[in-house]
Amino acid sequence: MKIAVCISHVPDTATKINIADNGKEIDPAGVTYIINPYDEFAVEEALTTKETLGDDSEVIAISVGNDKNKETIKKALAMGVDSGVLLKIESQLDSFGIAKALAEEIKAQGCDLVFMGKQSVDFDNQIVGQMTSAILDYSCISVVVDFKLDGQDITCEREIEGGKEVVAAQLPCIITAQKGLNEPRYASLKGIMSAKKKTIEEKSAVETESNTEVIGLKKPPAKNPGRILGTDSSAVHELVRLLREEAKVI
């Protein structure tokens, strides 16, 4: 079986973000990029699935973006993914555009099982998996914390308020990964060395367009600085008074 894992290249969550001059994009200067953390769970699950099947299954990583995404694809190859595909785009697409590009490639590759993170931590739309499945007419189980494959049958667990939901589906299917699905492996030193010999196919994404347009990015308003009421026990009464009368939280 061919298993696809879709990965995105996102700013490190610890990076300080600045807005570019056009006011619509982030300024990439000085930003460290990483593989989207939820996609790491997806990579791990794809690799575990391949290992469990123990047959000649292969795992293909697909990423939509530009040359920089190759770093992220290499990370997946170092973890054990067999090959990579970079779908190049000229300008940033919205979720629908990305879903269309991914769907086209998944179809071309003939992948019946697809893993991806439940969301990318850059724009957090949490919708690419579902859209891709709709375009392909695949099943989709989102925000998955447990995955089992038995022949054509899939059983997944999803976290819901106060419990778990068990969902069944059949291949072809797209699974979006939630934290807790697994513990992603480290890229081993051997894996990193052998990733050099694996191929990353580069091609242009299918003609795509976005349904939505980003009009502007804005930073959140600066937080008001905190107030120090005092440093000894006499401040407690004042704190209680303010919590009651000013903040009205107790």
């Binding site: 990370k75 170092a78 480290y186 890229a187 081993s188 990193i192 050099k196």
Partner: peptide, 9 residues
């Protein structure tokens, strides 16, 4: 790039 990846791992 490999050296950087190894360091980061």
């Amino acid at each position: 790039q490999e050296e950087i990846m190894i360091r980061d791992t």
